[in-house]
């Protein structure tokens, strides 16, 4: 009984200590430091990335004799022994998995 009474008293005192803190300009000061709108910058960034990607595709197509290198690469791959294809595919899968796992880890760490 005494134990409970003491705990109630302690909790009440602790809550008293947590009295409301007046804003006193805190929010206004903080809002001056909040970055400006990001939506235009985001759309601009997307447009720039898309434009550069399309330009790179056009340059690659023209510089590679109409994409002939792709046909050559496919022919080379088709002529390779099956076990080499398996090793190459496994290596690519490992690289992609490690990259994705690293990105996921970094994102989770940033959120915490």
């Amino acid at each position: 009984m005494d134990e409970e009474l003491h705990e109630d008293w302690l909790d009440a005192r602790l809550r008293e200590e947590a009295a409301y803190i007046d804003d006193a300009g805190f929010t206004a000061q903080l809002m001056q430091k909040v970055p400006a709108r990001r939506t235009t910058r985001t759309s601009l960034r997307g447009a720039v990335l898309l434009g550069i990607t399309m330009l790179a595709c056009v340059i690659t197509y023209l510089a590679s004799d109409g994409g002939h290198f792709l046909v050559s690469a496919v022919q080379t791959l088709a002529a390779m022994p099956l076990w080499i294809l398996f090793v190459v595919a496994t290596f690519c899968a490992v690289v992609v998995t490690v990259g994705a796992a690293s990105a996921a880890y970094l994102q989770v760490r940033d959120r915490s």
Binding site: A18, Y20, I21, D23, F26, T27, L30, M31, V34
Partner: peptide, 19 residues
């Protein structure tokens, strides 16, 4: 990206966080 809404969130929680 409503800054007024964010300011409202700050006002609602500033006391607890600062405390």
């Amino acid at each position: 990206d409503d800054h007024h809404a964010f300011a409202e969130l700050v006002r609602n929680h500033q006391s607890a966080i600062r405390g």
